[in-house]
Simulated scan of single mutants.
Amino acid sequence: MGMSVTIAAAGERDAEQILKLQYLCYQSEAARYGDYSLEPLTQPLASVQEELRTGTVLVARLGQEVVASVRGTLDAEGTGHIGKLIVHPRMQRHGLGGRLLAAMESRLGEAGAVKRYQLFTGHRSEGNLRLYRKHGYTPLSSERVDSRLTVVTLVKGAEAGAYVKSA
């Protein structure tokens, strides 16, 4: 009998597992862009612990193992910022990223008057872009960071709902 994945708020005890998973998950992004100095690969544990105290952090667990995570904050203008959506490589392409994204949208919506959601990814991260488009996000802007990376910022109105199947 298999175990099911559960999504819940992260606690302080999850910080180390989140950081280790983040390091594993961002290896493919670093290779894709030829840059192993990406912030998620250099973020210290104390910074993750601070995010747990000041923002909204969700985890997906398979038993006791953290297999996915996402972070979010709500700013004064009503924008829900979503970041560092990570899913263990062995758990990818089974809908877990989409479930976490929808759960974070819902959680941020409970926290206040959300007008829109915003997130970003690299221009070559086709899997991420596909997931975000599928969930109703549209490109807002692109910023060339260097010769290897252009950051694409995507947005979605809060009234759009948590899931758009037609994308």
Rank of each mutant, 00 (worst) to 15 (best):
M1Y: 10
G2Q: 05
V5R: 03
T6M: 09
T6H: 09
D14A: 15
A15P: 06
Q17S: 10
I18Y: 10
L19M: 08
L19Y: 09
L21S: 13
C25P: 12
Q27E: 11
E29M: 07
A30K: 02
A30N: 01
Y33A: 09
Y33G: 14
G34D: 01
S37V: 08
L38K: 14
E39D: 03
E39R: 05
P40D: 02
P40L: 00
L41Q: 00
Q43P: 02
V48K: 02
Q49W: 02
E50R: 10
E50I: 01
E51P: 01
E51D: 08
L52I: 01
R53N: 09
R53Q: 11
T54I: 11
T56W: 03
V57E: 01
V59N: 04
G63Y: 06
Q64P: 15
Q64K: 05
E65I: 04
V67G: 06
V67Q: 01
V70G: 09
V70K: 11
G72H: 04
T73D: 12
L74A: 10
A76N: 13
E77L: 03
E77F: 02
E77P: 00
T79D: 08
T79R: 13
G80C: 08
I82C: 08
I82M: 10
G83R: 09
K84V: 00
L85W: 06
I86D: 06
V87A: 04
V87F: 00
V87P: 06
H88A: 10
Q92I: 05
H94D: 01
H94M: 05
G95R: 14
L100Y: 12
L101W: 04
L101M: 12
M104T: 10
E105N: 05
R107E: 02
R107T: 09
G109K: 04
E110K: 15
E110H: 15
E110Q: 15
V114M: 01
K115I: 06
Q118F: 05
F120K: 07
T121C: 08
T121H: 05
G122C: 07
G122L: 05
H123P: 13
H123E: 07
H123A: 14
H123I: 08
R124F: 00
E126H: 11
G127Y: 01
G127V: 12
G127Q: 01
N128V: 15
N128S: 14
L129V: 08
R130E: 12
Y137G: 08
Y137H: 10
T138A: 11
R144S: 14
D146F: 03
S147E: 00
L149Y: 04
L149G: 02
V155I: 06
V155M: 00
K156S: 09
G157M: 01
G157L: 03
G161D: 12
A162G: 07
V164P: 05
